[in-house]
């Protein structure tokens, strides 16, 4: 594999090409602070920018009305990070959920995950999302924030073959490659972000 700085630079370039926002953090605490600050300054329902005011059928409208408060979903946090994040959220009046994501299918503002690996060649995050709540946090959030340790970066998917093979053998398993935000070009081939999944993907590269 090429030297780490090169791999990091390649990863950043490729991720930004698919509209991901890439930033660097020193430690997990900074990642939590980034998350809360981002949630604090984002509009309550980002869909507003394009379409949240569009009238819907009554059923769809009802579901949308379920969400009344800013929500951060961060299932699977370890080492006391959940408590730290709770404290930060309380300061800003943001609701933190760490489980029971099915109660929030109308959407959450931010889904925060610590991902397993990164693939530089395509700017991809690799996340074992066998935990259903973790999986949903990356699917129903408007912004997905993935925290990636630089030491977990690989050049190509082939460099991860053994690790992937091990994951697939530990069943049941649901492993996701995530590259950029959810996107479509199904109408007139015009690119639109945020069809069914996140409208934005933020990647926080963390020092080892």
């Amino acid at each position: 594999m090429p030297p780490l700085e090169e791999v990091v630079a390649l990863f950043r370039t490729k991720a930004e090409l698919v509209s991901a926002t890439v930033s660097e953090v020193e430690n997990p605490m900074q990642a939590l602070e980034y998350t809360v600050a981002l949630c604090d300054r984002k509009q309550a329902c980002q869909l507003l920018v394009a379409g949240c005011d569009a009238p819907l059928s009554p059923k769809a409208e009802d579901l949308c009305d379920h969400k009344q408060q800013k929500v951060i979903a961060a299932p699977g946090l370890v080492n006391g990070l959940a408590e730290d994040l709770q404290e930060l959220c309380d300061h800003k009046g943001i609701r933190l959920v760490t489980g029971g994501l099915r109660e929030h299918l109308a959407g959450v503002d931010i889904g925060l995950t610590f991902v397993d690996y990164g693939i530089a060649e395509t700017g991809t995050l690799v996340l074992d999302s066998s935990n259903e709540d973790l999986r949903l946090a990356t699917m129903i959030s408007e912004i997905h924030i993935g925290v990636l340790s630089k030491s977990r970066l690989r050049h190509s998917a082939f460099d991860l073959e053994d690790e992937l093979q091990n994951s697939l053998r530990t069943t049941p398993n649901y492993t996701a490659f995530i590259t950029g935000a959810s996107r479509t070009a199904d109408i007139e081939r015009v690119l639109a972000l945020g069809v069914h999944g996140p409208l934005e993907l933020h990647i926080l590269l963390m020092e080892n």
């Binding site: 394009a50 949240c52 569009a54 009238p55 819907l56 009802d62 639109a192």
Partner: peptide, 27 residues
């Protein structure tokens, strides 16, 4: 026709209409 509401032809908005209409279908 599907929403019973007049929809704008801007593509960004149409995509969001689909997002929100389909979300309840998954549920």
């Amino acid at each position: 026709d599907v929403t019973g509401q007049k929809q704008d032809s801007e593509i960004e908005r149409l995509v969001k209409v689909a997002r929100r209409e389909l979300r309840q279908k998954y549920v």
